[in-house]
Design a binder for these strands. Structure first.
Lengths: 131, 131
DNA sequence: GAGCTTAATGCAACTTAGTCGCATTAGTCA
DNA sequence: TGACTAATGCGACTAAGTTGCATTAAGCTC
């Protein structure tokens, strides 16, 4: 069952905006910002923000903060990863390291009694070409 | 040599705003936002933002994003740590786990040729009292 | 397919975080 | 004490995100 089918089965409607936004995020191989979605799909700004909140609440996308101005969004269909961000050219690379972090996260839950829902791990630096 | 002395030795001025902001961040045991600084010190908003940028460029403070609306700032005098954030009551706890992450970071630098300047690792969840 | 219900959308006005240019103030040094 | 200029304050601005409300359209029943 894909994301749209899952939403339908939960009683949510399959609208043009919803389909387009979800598809755009699933196809994109880099995080996407709200205004990029507005620009490339022509969907209203409020709708985009509401839909992003909704998809996040449905656990289908996540948000990340790289430059400290705006959120970016990624589909969760892709396998979980972290980011390496060049503070000069703003290039984003993906990074894997979850085995270690999962172990730590479970320990953390036990120690703190927090129920951990997600984590974010971002590295900031200067890429080879910018050095 | 403390932060202020270091700034002075580099030719920067020791002003009231600078002293107050640095002191506030050093004394606080939780991350502080720009508007909290404006409110509690009565320093002008532009000055606060400029000063925060400046202190960050001098490597004396760091910024973190927890709720996705605004930056928060911490003194680097405190030992490096990460955050555990309750998405309900917005309580922030500090977390240590740097041995592992440092090893990983060095490997990452080698693999990607990035020169890594900093990283941020935040955990989001629900604290015991909010569960 | 027509009619009904209401989730989802679009619009416009608003809020909030952060930025910028410029005139003024106040550290620092001689 | 005076001169130099880094730092400040003010006000106007931008950009990201939010909200209320009237309208539209997805999906169900007949």
């Amino acid at each position: 069952m894909n994301n749209l089918e899952e939403l339908k089965s939960k009683g949510f409607r399959i609208t043009k905006a919803r389909t387009a936004i979800l598809e755009l995020l699933e196809k994109s191989n880099a995080p996407v910002s709200a205004d990029e979605i507005v620009a490339s799909l022509g969907v209203n700004k409020s709708t985009v923000y509401r839909e992003l909140d909704f998809l996040e609440s449905q656990d289908m996308i996540t948000d990340i903060r790289l430059d400290n101005a705006k959120n970016m969004y990624e589909s969760k269909s892709k396998n979980h990863h972290h980011h390496l961000y060049c503070i000069k050219c703003k290039k984003i690379e993906e990074v894997d390291m979850d085995k270690d972090l999962d172990v730590f996260e479970r320990k953390l839950e036990k120690d703190t009694k927090f129920k951990i829902k997600k984590h974010s791990l971002e590295f900031f630096g200067i890429c080879l070409t910018c050095q």
